[in-house]
Design a protein around this nucleic acid. Sequence first.
DNA 1: TCGAGACTGTTATATTTTTTTCACAATTTT
DNA 2: AAAATTGTGAAAAAAATATAACAGTCTCGA
Lengths: 290, 290
Amino acid sequence: MTDAAQTISDRIQEKLDHLTRAERQLALSILENYPASGLGPLSALAKDANVSVPTVARMVQKLGYKGYPDFQSELREELRAKAKGPIAKHETWAEAAPSEHLLNRFTDAVIDNIRLTLGQIDPDAFDEACALVADPSRHLFIAGGRITHTLAEYFFMHMQVIRPNLTHVQSTSSTWPHYLLNAKEDDVFVIFDVRRYENNTLKLAEIAHARGAKIVLFTDQWRSPVHHLADITFSCRIIAPSAWDSTTTTMLLVETMISSVQNLNWDETKERMEHLEEMFDQTKLFRKFT
Amino acid sequence: MTDAAQTISDRIQEKLDHLTRAERQLALSILENYPASGLGPLSALAKDANVSVPTVARMVQKLGYKGYPDFQSELREELRAKAKGPIAKHETWAEAAPSEHLLNRFTDAVIDNIRLTLGQIDPDAFDEACALVADPSRHLFIAGGRITHTLAEYFFMHMQVIRPNLTHVQSTSSTWPHYLLNAKEDDVFVIFDVRRYENNTLKLAEIAHARGAKIVLFTDQWRSPVHHLADITFSCRIIAPSAWDSTTTTMLLVETMISSVQNLNWDETKERMEHLEEMFDQTKLFRKFT
DNA sequence: TCGAGACTGTTATATTTTTTTCACAATTTT
DNA sequence: AAAATTGTGAAAAAAATATAACAGTCTCGA
């Protein structure tokens, strides 16, 4: 444990379990900008982590240092050694694992996906899509297929809080709600379709398109055939070192859209969220934040 | 402080010619192990460079800083920026959008989450968890709560293809399958629990723990209370510029685990995937790949 | 539900360290 | 030799740290 080969970062992480709430909060804050934040004055660190000055002093000693200056000098020593060392590259994500480890390879691939996907996105189209989705006067249909079902559900769950007047449609479902057939011209469909593209989803899109509804499509880099019917298409790169494709990038886009729509409807959302909080408090479904 | 694009190292080197002998000696010493030596006390730096204390004070002001502490805080700021790495900063993701656009801010936050999360992961623990989950002789229970339900379902969906003998439990469900109460010692629970932590999930974990089953937990950086019962915990950073937390990082880990487990069980998975393909072809649920 | 105990922030103070500045002598440079 | 530079020693000022006492809060077990 007290081996010289151990970095202070390791040491903190190791003891993370034995720390109390405020101390853990502090520890995480230190790791956040490691090691810079630990090299400033104690008071600044405390403020940064939103804990009190004594908490910092107490934890540093708990970690086994004689005092804050002692802790700092070890940090500097580590920084010194690191700068000297031959391995200055920080290209691995899971630092404790070799770069060939799946953790690093997979993350590399996903970051690549994110980079390439975002690079192709037209921000105006994105904003336009958000505006469409945010408009409560349009009925919002959200549809996913077999794989994308979870994404659609995630999106639906959040939209439910943000706005009224929406429906979750599972394209693989044998029975579509009949009012879907009555979709109006002003309605919006958010459709998820990645390979392998599903016939049902295409049919659904055709119905929507025939009724003149707007279609926002999340698909992969090869583009679902729904693409021809969609008003706005987001194609996400989904390549991963796996037998399956990665949904992570699409998830990122979906979450960004949720955040954006939420901002557009903030007044109403706020109210709805407060109601939700109340409900949760009443049902005691959740524990108090610890 | 004047030029943002210039590092302090650059600044020192630039002025190197206009410095006197002792000052140059000091400057070179600072650059020797940069930036560590500049972050210690002034007196230590002076001693290190074999110059007097006033020389250090004089030069720092000559370089344009208000005082030694000012110089230090700039150094720390630089270190901070550098630690973020080239990927996190200095790059706009959606190139067509300004860096203040939500697309870029959100992605920045998520990349940060990924970096910090992966940095804390113990690859051995990860491999161990994958091995547990891959073992078909253990019954696999997958449980998620309100928010994490979609993640759990996504994981379950893929595990279904990879291995038999598994169950999806929705912790918020009013009725848990009765055989959950008969969980054996060798069984494995994969539990998702992020804030706000759910009491039902904790109860479920307690049952599992009481029966001696293994518990693998996916939680957030603050750690669900289930953590105390879990054999292996993955804490994912979930901060985002949004009223909600981001699940993207957790999704990344889940997908990595899926990929890893799939590799471990490849022989069987292959067979099952082929069966699945056949089924899909027969039901004509999917279109041919175009 | 209640109470003991642990945890944390607040406030205050003592202590230590660090920084800044000074005057002046020694040394080097021009 | 004059001017600039540098170190020495010291001391004042400022900042940072360590510690204590205490009250409010939360947790957990009875």
